[in-house]
Design a protein around this nucleic acid. Structure first.
Lengths: 149, 149
DNA sequence: TCATTTAGTTGACTTTGTCAACTAAATATC
DNA sequence: GATATTTAGTTGACAAAGTCAACTAAATGA
């Protein structure tokens, strides 16, 4: 590994941080904040699940998560039932209303990516997605070292 | 552009958000917060410059930036002189102390990337950096559409 | 049985970021 | 050359995002 490699990775990190920053701004024209959006997304994909099961995928503090879920319950996006086997936990699910909101957010997220890709050729998009897959594959392992560091 | 392309891009965005999130945690063992680190970095690279010139690269509100610079002045990391041609502005520079802090932060950022790459083969690193370059190249243009959207 | 752990909630707090009002200097307009 | 507008930077007030520890109640382990 050369200094040049390190520099390139760092350069990309700065670049992609700003891409993600731009993309995240679209939460401004949604009724959700970014962390709420993350919870909505993970809840949709993990349901039915407990709050604890959402901690890892959202990388959130359980207190913070608890408050967001509380707000979602109040707004009627989330339903919860007592857990069958564990009296401390709840089974969380999105309500019909919550699913509708998820769909809206999901669609508008995809639309934004469409806008981003709209002027790219088929080949460019191919280069983009395969590069993304390769990075994911290579870093997938490297990330483990990272969390330990 | 297919739905699969959109999905892949979104998948990568989620993945890389968490990579960046992990990397950003290393600010916890530095005397700087993440936004302070960004200012330190951009100041190092743009100096001598005015505060206004740091707004764009840091993506920061000028008020917020002003407070961070104020703290840097107080800690002696930054020096400022009245601007020659513009009495409203200042010429900002890192002090020797500020440069030292930049070097430390810069070194530890590189070290972290080294840890991340340490178990990758030469080939894997090559795949990684070329993929990163390709993404940067392709999205470089796409980003323009994005900021308008 | 009693100690420890775990799920979730809450209060208090810090950090990060936004917004608008403001001062003073620069630039544009008439 | 006076006056209106814009721009650089500061500040106060606030909102959003995140952390930390204490707490309740249920579950698990010794």
């Amino acid at each position: 590994m050369t200094d040049r490699d390190i520099r390139k990775v760092r350069e990309f990190n700065r670049f992609y941080t700003s891409v993600i920053g731009l993309l995240d701004k679209h939460y401004l024209n949604s009724p959700f904040t970014l962390p709420e959006g993350r919870v909505l997304y993970e809840l949709h994909h993990h349901q039915p699940c407990s709050a604890t099961e959402l901690i890892e995928p959202t990388h959130m503090d359980k207190g913070y998560l608890s408050r967001i879920l509380k707000a979602f319950l109040k707004k009627g996006y989330v339903i919860r039932k007592p857990h069958h086997e564990d009296g401390r936990a709840f089974q969380l699910m999105l309500s019909t209303k919550g699913e509708k909101e998820f769909d809206k957010l999901n669609t508008s997220s995809s639309d934004l990516i469409k806008v981003m890709l709209q002027n790219l050729s088929k080949d460019e998009i191919h280069v983009l997605t395969t590069s993304m897959e390769q990075i994911t594959e290579v870093i997938g392992q490297a990330k483990v070292e990272l969390s330990a560091a």
